[in-house]
Design a protein around this nucleic acid. Structure first.
Lengths: 188, 188
DNA sequence: CAATCAAGCTAATCACATTAGCCTGATTAT
DNA sequence: ATAATCAGGCTAATGTGATTAGCTTGATTG
């Protein structure tokens, strides 16, 4: 049994029953082995497994949004990126929970984990001609918005009947307008 | 021993050692009682306790930001609200984790939990003369950004050396500009 | 004064996580 | 070819924390 396959199974389990429900026992059951055997693959136990799930999730998100952004530029690239992100979260609620779980592990790996995605965002912004610093601000703002929006949406935290799709487009529009304003400032 | 006092102690514990470290045993120890006794206050066990911590957190955040917004309007109100929110999270990392934990409990209480804060945001936006729908979009956008930014910041997820305070101000400025643009559209 | 209730306690049960040590088939080195 | 090694599983055993059951006692209430 390959390590990557185990992680993938765990990720599926998270999506089906929630990240919190992942346990060595459950996972072992689903794999048809006994839980102690899992320690042959993850000597660090549940902690290591969770960390691997998190990293797997970021890799997956990275590849999904990369696909969408290829060949696009400016607003088009940013919008597709954000749509892809949101779609990813909707399809991987449990995995996304795991991905946010990188708080107890404040080390290199966690930063690297989301670095791939940050990189894609940077590239998407490259054609706007912003200063490096403004690009950083913008990427951070987009990340923050995306993470917050998707988390709240997933958790059913937005109670109002007003369309969430419209809110999403509205917010993207606001952000893109903000970027456009900055460009004007730059051109002067 | 009063229920509210227990919840408060648990919240302090969360801030000190992280939400994940809260256990019936730990909490009982800190309170000087045995863990089974806690079930006299929380018949629903750990789940109920966690839920109460979450609700306590939202009440607290609600009251903090309400204080800051009183007597202010427009940009001033929004900015103070957001600063207060960010400050709250910085001072209550563990509690804030608990507050986000309302995913497994998708019921009335959870919506009500954050409703107080949403209400304050609405009031802060009242003087802009936006349509109801745009107000909803705006509140959602601000909530999303705030939640994402504070979570990522708290988890140390922003690796770049660029100042986070500047990013925060930058983002608020972008959002406020967006609101201003909408007003123009309305006045026509 | 008796009944009731709140809030603690101890003992017992359960569900994992994790460790220790054993086994077997496949791979590798001699 | 044969012996040594290793990967990947297994069973048995330990430990911790949640939860339940049932007892006790001081305070409240009828």
């Amino acid at each position: 049994m390959k390590r990557e396959a185990i992680i993938q199974t765990a990720a599926e389990m998270a999506d089906e029953k929630g990240f919190a429900s992942i346990s060595m026992k459950e996972l072992a059951d689903r794999l048809g082995i006994k839980s102690p055997s899992l320690y042959k693959h993850f000597s660090g136990g549940l902690d290591e497994l969770n960390k691997e799930i998190m990293l797997y999730g970021w890799r997956l998100l990275d590849s999904e949004i990369t696909k969408e952004v290829i060949g696009k530029a400016k607003d088009d690239a940013v919008i597709e990126l954000c749509y892809a992100y949101r779609r990813f979260v909707a399809e991987h609620k449990g995995l996304y929970e795991a991905m946010q779980w990188y708080n107890m592990y404040l080390s290199d790996e966690h930063l690297q984990a989301s670095e791939g995605m940050v990189d894609v965002m940077f590239r998407a912004l490259s054609s706007y001609g912003l200063t490096e610093e403004k690009k950083v601000h913008t990427v951070r703002m987009i990340r923050a918005f995306m993470q917050g929006f998707c988390t709240i949406e997933c958790h059913g935290g937005y109670g109002n009947p007003v369309s969430l799709n419209e809110t999403f487009d509205f917010a993207l529009h606001t952000i893109l307008t903000g970027i456009a304003d900055m460009q004007e400032g730059t051109e002067k």
